[in-house]
Design a protein around this nucleic acid. Structure first.
Lengths: 345, 345
DNA sequence: CTGTTAGCGCGTTCAA
DNA sequence: TTGAACGCGCTAACAG
């Protein structure tokens, strides 16, 4: 019974026309008053504003967006939200967006190309003001992103990008940092360094591989082993990979891992076999492990500066939305990642 | 120069009217054809559909939403996305939502009441189809959620809820599970068990505290220490708390921790002081530690079933949107969390 | 089978 | 200072 009473009393969404009707003015007057347009009598303005406040008037953004006046919705597409790298980005962008009057909608490709395509269509349907993307591992072809340009929807890539789409991009210095850690391992005396990374259709993994190989070449190392993992980066996959590596001859004496989850898998199995770190095996990982401090020994890692990546991506997108950057302009921002030295190598 | 050319050639968003004009039919015919309305000649339908496909026609959802026809946008409000509990929920809900034709917008309160209030207003402005919320630690008063009912916007609470708002809620069995782990520790021989939790204005922490205390009472334990942390749950705070606890006399011999981050802080400091786990100190934590397998000893924890929470919350919300559940109906779903026994106590 | 008309909520002309 | 009329893109009721 009670529910019915509530439903009957339920207030319908109040519109400017409702206010206009109640106050015996035209709805255009109400519209003006609400937007503090000068040309409306002080008295009527007060009347209108009070009424609006008392009845919890809220602008209908759908109407505004339909008129093409404002559109404050940004779409964020990430491969997943399980990895800390991406959830940090989502977190930071959600805060940034809200603080600047934008609503952020999140889409997850789960690393699937097909889903990514569909999502782009959805984004066009909903007429988002802009899109920030890190592409799926599956994505080999980038036509769907070109579609966005056709609809004049601003687009910014971060981390995993499409090289052939002309639009702002935010990346980290994958080549340089991987070269640097490779050199670091070499100088520490490691001779058989495995580079564990993703498939080279993705710039991130390709750049890392090139960085690794360039340094292997520079130092004329005999052992070279760049392993591309096409599976999802999970702890389980990390375990499998380590087991395979450890059975090989010669055994590696150091691993550069592109993913925290892979690293954890490696560490678990290494421990189970009694492999000493850093003596038997050196290890460096991309990304901060949340519980890094309790892992013994602490793992040397690369801080990917998620916060700065998010910040730069957001700024670029907003500039595009405001037409301060042209659509199709190809700005590249490089965020400098940092090696945090611990005792795993 | 090139940019300008691109801009001039930029295709404007194509509408049903554009199609109608090109094909010399009325735009309502186009509308019908696109929605596969029966009453349109096979021939013209084909014509229209082909044209639409070739020109990448995409329905303007803003127009649909303005008409009140469909609204497929769901707002998800969480305290933060840094904790795994919430990022798992965000991940799962994003997938679920998309698979069912909804767009999910994410909002982060950063545990602030004031922000939560503002976000609710934003949600009303944008006329979201529904809202899924876990409230901020700061939130003592729930009026802002009542506002949603006024606008007939469906609302589902999960985990951290407002008791006095009548609407569907999804919780875990905090009282029972905390009682259970308390009893478990007691039976293991621990005598001085500290319960580390949040402020009791939040149901989650209040229920846990009650569960703990009920069992302490049952077993007539002398030592009782339920510690409410009002700060954010961070590793640093966890460290501080442990240090304070360890200086106290008598020292606790077991800790129940409400947060993974606190737990990590505790473990770090315990190790630095050479405290043996589980001998000197037993520990159980709410939530899975991502790198749990490499932590020695492995920590007994409570699996909070994020996936099921997300699933249930989503189902309830969709039913409300479809009017299969009345607004203001107070359904409570309890998800049974599980103890995963390891060797930390 | 197709066209006409009206309206969702709003802002923006142009008139008064 | 205010009102009337129009249109954003779409669907639905009605008419032919």
């Amino acid at each position: 019974m009670h529910t019915f009473v509530l439903n009957i009393n339920m207030q319908k969404r109040i519109t400017i026309k409702d206010i206009a009707f109640e106050l015996n003015v035209h709805h255009s007057t109400v519209s003006r008053a609400l937007r503090n347009d000068q040309r409306v009598k002080e008295e009527t303005r007060e009347l209108i504003l009070n009424y609006a406040r008392e009845h919890d008037y809220q602008t209908n953004m759908n109407a505004l967006q339909l008129r093409g006046k404002t559109n404050n919705t940004i779409a964020l597409i990430v491969p997943n939200i399980n990895h800390n790298f991406f959830s940090d980005i989502v977190s930071k962008l959600t805060n940034l967006g809200y603080a600047n009057g934008y609503v952020i909608s999140v889409f997850q490709t789960n690393e699937k190309y097909q889903l990514e395509r569909e999502i782009i269509n959805t984004i066009i349907k909903y007429n988002f003001a802009g899109v920030i993307v890190s592409i799926a591992k599956d994505t080999l072809q980038c036509d769907h992103f070109a579609l966005l340009k056709k609809y004049a929807i601003p687009l910014v890539f971060f981390d995993r990008i499409c090289e052939d789409i002309l639009t702002p991009k935010v990346k980290i210095n994958n080549f340089e940092i991987t070269a640097e850690i490779t050199e670091y391992l070499i100088k520490k005396g490691y001779k058989k360094i495995v580079h564990l990374t993703g498939t080279t259709n993705i710039n991130v993994f390709r750049d890392r591989q090139n960085g690794y190989e360039s340094m292997i070449r520079n130092y004329e190392m005999e052992y070279k082993n760049s392993l591309q993992v096409s599976d999802d980066f999970t702890v389980e996959v990390g375990k499998d990979i380590f087991m395979k590596l450890w059975r090989q001859s010669p055994r590696p004496d150091a691993i550069i891992s592109s993913s925290v989850h892979l690293t954890i898998g490696i560490l678990v199995e290494a421990r189970s076999l009694g492999v000493q770190i850093p003596k038997d095996l050196g290890i460096i990982t991309f990304g901060r492990i949340v519980s890094s401090e309790i892992i013994e020994p602490q793992i040397t890692f690369i801080d990917q500066q998620e916060s700065e990546i998010a910040q730069l991506s957001f700024e670029l997108l907003v500039k595009m939305i405001r037409h301060e950057i042209q659509l199709g302009e190809s700005i590249e921002k490089i965020v400098r990642s940092q090696i945090i030295y611990k005792s795993s190598c």
